[in-house]
Amino acid sequence: MEPTVFVPTDLYVMLSAVMFVMGAMGVLLRRNAIIIFMSVELMLNSANLALVAFARQWGQVDGQVFVFFVMTVAAAEVAVGLALIVAIFRARKSINIDEMHEMKG
């Protein structure tokens, strides 16, 4: 059953775009690896919001299944990413990504 549409999908897409841009700005402007990771999570979430909004627009749950997958992949990404950060911090005593410009151990 298709739920009644109250708020137009355009508004959700706009909000999702704004949140995505803020996440991208965080990735580009911040130098702390953990904050960069959180910004990536923000971008993933804004994409999820757009997916659910379009799923409601079409009255199909496929978009929600996709959101489920995105969440799972995000969880995997966080596990690996944080492990990387911990390993780098051990080696260099810093998580400032500007200090990680050499591909040396």
Binding site: Y12, L49, V52, A55, R56
Partner: peptide, 19 residues
């Protein structure tokens, strides 16, 4: 909250619990 208003209660609760 937006997920709830968009008719996705399951995804909404997963968002709170997992994310």
């Amino acid at each position: 909250f937006f997920f709830l208003t968009l008719g996705a209660p399951f995804i909404s609760l997963v968002q709170i619990a997992v994310y």
